[in-house]
Design a protein around this nucleic acid. Structure first.
Length: 545
RNA sequence: GCGCCCGUAGCUCAACCGGAUAGAGCAACUGCCUUCUAAGCAGUAGGUUACAGGUUCGAGUCCUGUCGGGCGUACCA
């Protein structure tokens, strides 16, 4: 932010005036919790206290007295508490920045943090064994939103879905479909142990019967059943993602890795002496990376464990020349991550380009009780069912509301409530309310898009709202750095609160034309900021509610 | 047993690299619609930040230990 850099520059100059030899500590600017304390603050004097062997308050005093303000951005400088220096911005600076935001419109909040970077985000990655459930929701929405935030910071982003359609799960799935198929032909068909019990299996079987009649009844060949199940389920998953506003760019089949990459990885690890054979299996010396036990890469049956393709997959990603590769992982996958990183490093790749967002599991609360889900037992709430009840906006919002690292409780009944309890409406309502005022204002007075004169704005509620609006780019930056979309929600809440307060205190219709113009201009920026924030979250910003 | 994550108001959760008086929503209570959307605003009440130590000018935040919850810890994916 321009102001931050400016302040740091002036503080630096002032410190050097007092003590030319001083090695400068890192100067940080932060926003005081209490607005009465000012718009920005620094703790340099406190940090310098032990270095200069002087009382922090005195150092702060000297720095404050020595401050220049060549551009006239700073309204006041105060020393407070144990040695904080508090700054208040001059309104002229606020108006200049506001004008800039006003002109950027739908691009306001775009920053260049990741400009020119190629980033891949891998998420959802559910194997095609059933519809997406509420349990997959957090992964899907989190991944898509992190991708959106990266895009907003200038990156070229690819969304990838990694899947496996070859394992035991898929075999059981095909057997389940076949059993239902035979059942529908009124033939004796034992249902496979641990088979998939969901109604969707019967639907797939019915479609097969309509297409092939009873021709498949005598064959032991599973291919048709497997293929039909996979196709149907993937189609369904894509429909669900589509409803949630999620568009994947690529689907990566784990099978690809068996046509070379896995052999290459084994060769590389072998050359580094990280591999040995024992009991007919092939082991990776993970003890060298600080683990208690070594890890099996290839079972004595000849099949690889899931770690081997994971390693090959990440090397494959890095070969695709991404600057950053992000995995969205549930807490259950976290154990494999260190092995993958170590192995990728050992193969001579830069594992620092791999980043992981780990989210804690979602506890579904239904009818006031925790709800245990299982895809096999068909005991689940699908994302589609949830969206039927609550809508896509609410669904996305609930998954994004909390920091990824905390356990999330998803109360289905609460999400369904369309009333005032639902926090997403607070944001959307603010936007709709602004749009409504604009419609009314345009009926009665001409607003010709000419530059509003923001210096008309002096009311406390106006100034507070302006300051909130100006925080937006910084929020995007922090969100992108931490990969924590809930920060945007927190911010939008504060922005909406500032707007509603403004709405309560200040009017537009009936005010003098210059003031009305300035206020409409402010509302314009506010609406754009709300809309841009909601867009990053993949949530709509309605004009009416 | 060991490893990772979490523990903040009655409930669900915030708190930017360690900053000043720990904040929202829901639930409870009190006010505010004859003028731009009351899905709103203003206010009251609610806390030993699980517990015990440590580090320092300063700790919800960092370190150690204890207790409680989640997830791993397979030649299952």
């Amino acid at each position: 932010m321009a102001m931050e850099e400016y302040l740091i520059e002036q503080i630096k100059t002032s410190i050097l005036k007092i003590n030319p030899e001083a090695s400068l500590p890192e100067i940080t600017i932060e926003k005081p919790r209490q607005p009465e304390m000012g718009d920005a603050a620094t703790n340099v004097a406190l940090r310098l206290g032990s270095v200069l062997k002087k009382k922090p308050v005195d150092i702060a005093r000297e720095i404050a007295d020595g401050m220049d303000d060549p551009s006239g951005y700073i309204r006041s400088v105060e020393v407070a508490g144990p040695g904080f220096i508090n700054f208040r911005f001059d309104h002229s600076w606020l108006f200049t920045e506001l004008k800039d935001a006003y002109e950027k419109e739908h691009a306001y909040g775009n920053i260049e943090l990741n400009k020119g970077k190629k980033i891949q985000v891998e998420f959802v990655s559910a194997n095609p064994t059933g519809p997406l459930t509420v349990g997959h929701g957090r992964n899907a929405v989190l991944g898509d939103t992190v991708a959106r935030v990266f895009e907003w910071t200038g990156a070229d982003v690819e969304r990838e879905y990694y899947f496996n359609n070859a394992g035991r799960q898929m075999r059981v799935l095909a057997e389940s479909v076949r059993a239902r198929y035979l059942e529908q032909l009124e033939m004796d068909a034992p249902f496979p142990e641990g088979g998939y019990e969901g109604a969707y299996i019967s639907d797939i079987a019915r479609a097969i019967r309509e297409e092939h009649g009873d021709r498949l009844a005598s064959s032991e060949n599973m291919d048709v059943f497997k293929q039909a199940a996979e196709d149907e389920i993937f189609k369904d998953i894509q429909r669900t993602l589509d409803r949630m506003n999620i568009k994947m760019d690529s689907f990566f089949n784990e099978n690809e890795l068996y046509k070379g990459p896995i052999d290459d990885v084994m060769k590389m690890l072998n050359e580094k002496g990280l591999i040995y054979e024992q009991d007919g299996a092939t082991w990776l010396k993970t003890t060298l990376f600080g683990k208690d036990k070594d890890t099996v890469l290839i079972k004595s049956s000849g099949e690889p464990t899931y770690r081997l393709p994971d390693i090959a997959y990440h090397i494959n990603k890095l070969d695709r020349s991404f600057d950053l590769v992000v995995d969205i992982f549930g807490a259950d996958h976290i154990a494999t991550y260190p092995d993958v990183i170590s192995a990728v490093n050992a193969c001579g790749y830069d594992a620092k380009k791999i980043d992981v967002v780990v989210y804690q599991f979602v506890t579904i609360v239904k009818d006031g009780k925790p709800f245990k889900m299982s895809t096999r037992k068909a005991n689940f709430v699908t994302l589609d069912e949830l969206m039927d009840e609550a809508g896509a906006d609410v669904t996305r919002f609930f998954f994004l509301m909390r920091a990824p690292g905390t356990h999330l409780e998803f109360d289905i009944e609460e999400a369904k409530q369309a009333g005032e309890k639902n926090p997403v409406y607070y944001l959307q309502y603010a936007h709709a309310r602004i749009k409504s005022i604009m419609r009314k204002a345009l009926e009665t007075q001409s607003y010709d898009q000419q530059k509003p004169d923001f210096s008309q704005l002096n009311h406390d509620s106006e100034i507070t709202l302006i300051k909130r609006v100006l925080e937006f780019p910084k929020v995007i930056e922090v969100t992108a750095q931490n990969k924590e979309p809930h920060r945007i929600i927190n911010y939008l809440n504060e922005l909406a609160t500032a707007f509603h307060k403004f709405y309560h205190d200040c009017r537009i219709l009936g005010e003098a034309p210059e003031l009305a113009h300035a206020r409409i201009g402010l509302l314009n920026v506010t609406a754009h900021t709300l809309a841009n924030g909601l867009t990053i979250l993949g949530i709509s910003a309605p004009d009416r509610m």
